[in-house]
């Protein structure tokens, strides 16, 4: 019967919680959705905010109302009600988190399966090898056979999955593009695989997310004075043009290098 007494409060708590959820969702601040994966992850986040607000609202309301309604008066010698538990209630508040957990597992698993397009990227899109070093990134375009120099910017075409293979020369780094909702570590002793499908043309910040030594702070293109270039997403036509330019430049460089070696040999 006690349940009936708290039922209205539970409803009020849910309503207040829902208001908190709505506020959290409306005022949410997230970076731009610059990849196809970003939208799904943001939906997950909105779902989290929705149940978080409600749970927070219920817990806080019950706590505050409980403390206020059952507060002790000065020199109050009363004792609380000798209740040791309520099986029904306990089952209820085991079941509710369980339902939320199941929902999270389903949502998470679904998004994970949908976003895991590495295999697709290997087939159709660009395959790019990212090498982390202290302190910067080096990119090798494996399909185009272009090896960029250190400190060169990453240029990728829009709208097609990009398969990244990540390694490191020295210590662990993590290649993070917040606008893509994409992060993967580069480890020196293994190759990691991850993929992302950029969906917006523009330049986006590249952040090293894992502490990698004294230069870690500067390994973030958003920090002032950083020499790390942003990632540039371009249209397919621009990308093809860029690839051609890079190839020409590389050929020229190779030629020059040849000439120098010949000159030295002579």
């Amino acid at each position: 019967m006690k349940n009936l007494k708290v039922l209205p409060l539970a409803i009020i708590g849910t309503v207040i919680g829902a208001v908190i959820s709505v506020i959290l969702i409306v005022t949410r601040t997230l970076p731009m959705q610059a990849s196809e994966q970003a939208a799904n992850i943001d939906y997950l986040y909105i779902f989290f905010l929705a149940f978080s607000g409600i749970i927070f609202g219920i817990v806080t309301l019950f706590l505050l109302v409980g403390v206020y309604r059952f507060r002790a008066r000065p020199n109050d010698q009363r004792e609380g009600k000798n209740v040791h538990g309520n099986t029904g209630l306990e089952i209820l508040w085991t079941a509710i988190p369980f339902v939320i957990v199941v929902a999270c597992v389903i949502g998470g698993w679904y998004v994970l399966a949908k976003d895991d397009v590495y295999a697709a990227g290997e087939k159709s899109g660009q395959k790019i090898h990212i090498i982390g070093y202290q302190f910067g990134w080096k990119f090798d375009y494996m399909n185009e056979e272009i090896a960029l120099k250190e400190e060169a910017e990453l240029v990728v075409p829009v709208g097609q999955p990009i398969a990244f293979e990540l390694t490191s020369n020295d210590v662990m780094h993590a290649f993070w593009v917040p606008d893509w909702r994409f992060q993967m570590s580069t480890l020196p002793t293994q190759t990691n695989y991850a993929s992302v499908t950029p969906s917006k043309i523009g330049t986006f910040d590249v952040v090293c997310a894992y502490l990698c030594g004294v230069g870690h702070t500067g390994m973030n293109s958003a920090v002032e004075g950083s020499i790390i270039p942003q990632v540039r997403v371009v249209s397919q036509a621009d990308f093809d043009k860029w690839v051609a330019e890079r190839k020409a430049a590389l050929a020229q460089e190779a030629e020059q290098a040849d000439q120098t070696t010949t000159a030295e040999a002579a």
Binding site: K2, F70, G80, G85, T94, I96
Partner: peptide
């Protein structure tokens, strides 16, 4: 991911049990 999420259940039980403890008590602040 599943085992991590499952930890939310015993933790939730604790939080709600403490709320249940406050309820109908004589709360000295």
């Amino acid at each position: 991911m599943i085992s991590t999420l499952l930890i939310a259940i015993p933790t939730g039980i604790k939080i709600f049990s403490w709320l249940g403890t406050v309820w109908d008590g004589v709360v000295r602040l």
